[in-house]
Simulated scan of single mutants.
Amino acid sequence: MLIALDVGNSHVKVGGFNGDDLQFVASIETDDRQTGEQYACALKDVFGLYGVMLSEIHGAVLCSVVPGMHPIMSKALRFLTNGPILNVSSGVKTGLNIKIDQPRALGSDLVANAVWAMHTGQTPCVVVDMGTVTTFTAIDRDGVLVGTAIAAGVRIMLDAVKRSAAQLPIVQLEAPAHGVIGKNTVEAIKAGAVYGAAAMIDGMLARYADAFGAAPHVFLTGGASEAIAPYLQTEAELDPYITLRGLYLIWKKNRG
């Protein structure tokens, strides 16, 4: 089994691949104050929950948007497998044609997303990743990664509302019962979060269509994607685990 780790600002997504099959996905909190030993224990518990024996793990691939987490997670994985550990960074084969000002500065999670998008052969396309931040990765009809955009994530917006307005309550990320017309404070916050995020994404995708001269294929992924997907007016292919799938393809390109 291959273990894929997508280390985000808030959570680490853990995926287990048996061949091409993504057999399980789990999530643990990102905390760069923890040690490699602590994360090794957390990962071992995850594997135990899904019935994975350490002897089954033949290697691991990881990407991280938190620089301090690279050595921590690499050390953790060393306790759990004798197989190779691939960190997605400059020098790793991806097969991507990247034409931006600083290709080496492109987030490794966005690289993994683009690798999966290219693998599907559906271009032009935009990968919308709804994590701590919402990112847009644009690939033109020739398969060139031509640029990205970054916006505040919907959960950041909810946190900011709570911090800035003490009287407003904490709410779940879900659509309100009465749609976009909230009937009370809780519904109003939910309406702003869900429909506001969907409208922002729809608006951005309309601008990408103008830039490409054609409507792009849209991939929607990330932790908040399932909550927002039903309220988009733009057709999108939902898969919360595109980053993990892209990591698996990068492993295959580099390790066969």
Rank of each mutant, 00 (worst) to 15 (best):
I150V: 14
G223C: 07
V146E: 10
I139D: 03
Q122G: 10
T120H: 10
A193K: 01
K99R: 14
G256H: 09
A138H: 12
A152M: 11
E226W: 08
I201Y: 01
R155M: 15
L238V: 14
V12N: 01
G246P: 00
T135W: 02
A175T: 09
V14D: 05
V161M: 15
T185G: 02
V126N: 05
L43D: 01
G19S: 05
G59D: 08
G246L: 01
L96H: 07
G179Y: 05
Y241S: 07
G143D: 09
T30M: 09
G192D: 06
I189C: 05
T137N: 12
I242E: 01
P176C: 06
G15T: 02
C63S: 15
S89C: 14
N87K: 14
T221G: 08
M118T: 09
G213S: 13
L249Y: 11
H58S: 13
L49A: 14
A211M: 13
A193H: 01
A166T: 14
A117L: 06
M157H: 13
S74V: 15
V128T: 04
I57R: 03
K93F: 13
E226D: 12
R33F: 08
D6Y: 00
A209T: 07
G143I: 04
N113Q: 11
C63P: 11
Q172F: 06
A214M: 15
M69A: 14
Y231E: 04
P67Y: 08
L5G: 06
L86K: 00
I139G: 00
I3N: 00
D159M: 12
G182R: 04
A224F: 01
S74Q: 15
G192V: 07
K44W: 03
G121R: 09
G179S: 09
T135H: 06
V144H: 03
S108G: 11
V7H: 06
V7R: 00
G223H: 00
C63N: 14
A198I: 03
Y208D: 04
G107E: 13
F136R: 05
L62R: 01
P103Q: 08
T123G: 02
S64N: 11
A197L: 10
L62E: 05
H217E: 10
L145G: 01
D140T: 00
F17R: 06
T94N: 00
G48P: 08
V128D: 03
F219Y: 15
V127K: 03
D31L: 07
V65A: 07
V52L: 14
V127N: 05
A193M: 05
R78M: 13
L168F: 14
P71K: 05
S89V: 14
V144S: 07
E226N: 11
A112I: 03
L43N: 01
A60Q: 04
R155W: 08
S27R: 15
P216K: 02
A211P: 01
R78A: 15
S27L: 09
G222F: 02
Q34G: 12
N97A: 11
M204K: 08
S164P: 03
Y39R: 02
F17G: 03
A105W: 10
G196E: 03
L86M: 08
D6I: 04
Q233D: 13
L96T: 08
G153A: 10
R255W: 09
V65R: 06
A199T: 12
